[in-house]
């Protein structure tokens, strides 16, 4: 295979990470196509977040390569990967608590337009319209002037999505976008994401615990267990994969029941 044999947005090959003898991620390879919504699932401690942190540059892989649109981005600093058109949201939200909601997005826009070292002008007034449009996209325009510190958790998650979209990325990485949200909120948030993805022709890789969310929205599902990919297939195939069922439910039958709700 050449450096970039396929036209995948993201091409991951043999990615591994060990922390002092513990193999957190072992030889993970997959590709992500344009416009695809790919879910990465797996039990707690399977290595999902470690995977994410390696893709986005927060962690250096022990082995393996990551190609973004054919370019090797392995071990690049997060801010450089971001500049190449990758947005990410965090499992535990990270927002600027001393700023208003809209200013949080303006900050990302300022960075995108390479204005962060500028001492000219008033930041509060710059790229305001763009920021408001992004807020509208996630349905938060009414809250634009609220201090970020008092937002509800679900709103913080939505704000993070707006921040992640601010530089018009081609790839969005979302680490447990619906964790800690009420069931209704989850559906709404993922519906929102799916709409944005199809509207902007984005590619998305996301991790998720809620199978309803995964099965309702993902185009393809990968299952990670103890650091290894044990499945990478369509929703239907993964749902019926006995190994996946074993990992998730210890061989129970709940998995097969359509629309079963989970705690």
């Amino acid at each position: 295979m050449n450096e970039s044999a396929n036209d995948a947005v993201l091409d991951v090959r043999g990615l591994s990470k060990s922390f002092g003898g513990v193999d957190a991620v072992v030889d993970v390879s997959f590709t992500l196509q344009r416009g695809e919504l790919l879910a990465l699932i797996g039990p707690n401690g399977a290595g999902k977040t470690t995977c994410f942190n390696m893709l986005m540059g927060q962690l250096k892989p022990s082995a393996g390569k990551v190609y973004l649109n054919g370019e090797n981005i392995t071990g690049m600093a997060p801010r450089r990967i971001w500049r190449k058109g990758v947005g990410r949201t965090f499992q535990i939200t990270g927002t600027y608590s001393s700023m208003t909601v809209v200013e949080n997005i303006q900050m990302a826009l300022l960075s995108h337009h390479r204005k962060i070292y500028s001492m000219m002008g008033v930041a509060h007034r710059q790229y305001r319209d763009e920021a408001m449009q992004l807020l509208q996209l996630v349905g938060m325009q009414d809250q634009s002037e609220r201090p970020c510190a008092i937002l509800a958790y679900g709103d913080l998650k939505r704000l993070e999505i707006a921040i992640a979209l601010s530089h018009e990325p081609t790839l969005l990485l979302m680490d447990e976008p619906t964790a800690g949200m009420a069931p209704q909120e989850r559906i709404a948030l993922m519906q929102l994401t799916a709409d944005i993805v199809s509207e902007k022709n984005l590619s998305v890789l996301f991790t998720e615990h809620d199978m309803d969310v995964v099965f309702a929205h993902a185009h393809r599902v990968m299952v990670l267990n103890r650091g290894q990919l044990i499945a990478n297939a369509s929703v239907e195939e993964v749902r019926n994969d006995p190994q996946v069922q074993e990992v998730y439910l210890g061989g129970g039958t709940l998995f097969k029941e359509q629309g079963a709700s989970h705690a």
Partner: peptide, 23 residues
Amino acid sequence: HSPFGYALRASRDSARQAEATGI
């Protein structure tokens, strides 16, 4: 109040988010 001042506060409020958005 300038973009630089905002970037400085952003770096303090959430260095992780700031780094992840190019700062």
